[in-house]
């Protein structure tokens, strides 16, 4: 709702929030997906994470959702908030209307209610894209690490901030249509290792991983990933950069 049109509560009286939560338990064959409403009073500085814990503690102990860090670092509490992917712990209820709809992230395996198995998909993607440093140089564990220019380290760190929450995948139109698509999280990881001077892979090696329609050429630049990334990663520029590099190989 447009904030200006939202009805403001009278001073001193907390808003009464209604959370409509999509409930489903795949482990129970009798479970049918349905929306269940919970009401609670809004508190100052309340996040959706706090609201969900309040509901689980005082209204319904069977409600399933994930969280670890409460600070937008672990990426566990990503869910659809009024239809858009976001982190429950970073979403203040005061920025939303009185009625809030919560659903699990689409695309990922559902564990139950708002809990999805992003970890399984992320691990599979990491293995598929080989997102670790590849080097033929023998490792000397007693030697000092090779120095890196601060600007280079900063650039790598900027991309390493990804928390694998899955918001980019849930916000990606291509991924919704084509399940094999690696998505922004996968492409961002390739961009990160491409920057790393310790990784000896060339663009031709990276082409083997993302040089097809399930990789960088599958991206249609809808940029849901860029706009919904809770860490504000520069996904548009990174994907464009990778596309230029991979397309250049097609000209050889």
């Amino acid at each position: 709702m447009i904030p200006l049109l939202r009805r403001r509560p009278t001073a001193g009286q907390p808003r009464r929030l209604t959370l409509s939560i999509l409930r489903c338990n795949p482990a129970d064959p009798a479970s049918v997906p349905h929306l269940q409403d919970y009401e609670l009073d809004e508190a100052d500085g309340m996040t959706l994470f706090i609201a969900l814990n309040d509901i689980r503690a005082h209204q319904d102990g069977s409600l399933q959702f994930d969280f670890v860090c409460r600070a937008g670092i672990c990426g566990s509490c990503a869910m659809l908030i009024n239809g858009r992917p976001g982190l429950a712990c970073r979403t203040l209820t005061r920025d939303l209307g009185d009625h809030i709809t919560l659903a699990p992230l689409p695309y990922f395996e559902l564990i139950g209610d708002l809990s999805v198995n992003t970890g399984k998909w992320m691990r599979g993607t990491s293995e598929r894209l080989q997102t670790w440093i590849h080097s033929t140089t023998p490792v000397d564990l007693d030697a000092l690490e090779a120095r890196m220019e601060p600007a280079e380290a900063e650039a790598i760190y900027e991309l390493d901030r990804c928390i694998e929450c899955g918001c980019c995948i849930a916000g990606c139109g291509t991924a919704q249509m084509r399940e094999g698509f690696v998505g922004a999280v996968g492409l961002n990881k390739i961009a990160r290792f491409r920057l790393d001077p310790r990784d000896q892979r060339s663009d031709a090696d990276f082409y083997e991983l993302i040089g097809d329609d399930d990789g960088v050429f599958g991206c249609m630049s809808l940029l849901g990933c860029h706009d919904l990334c809770p860490k504000q990663l520069p996904l548009q520029t990174q994907i464009a950069f990778l596309r230029r590099k991979m397309a250049a190989l097609g000209l050889r």
């Binding site: 590849h134 892979r201 090696d205 082409y207 083997e208 097609g250 050889r252």
Partner: peptide, 17 residues
């Protein structure tokens, strides 16, 4: 993996298309 380039690689056609 680094040596995998010796194998016949992925088609360049997706890039060209």
């Amino acid at each position: 993996s680094v040596a995998s380039r010796a194998k016949p690689g992925k088609s360049r056609w997706p890039a060209r298309l």
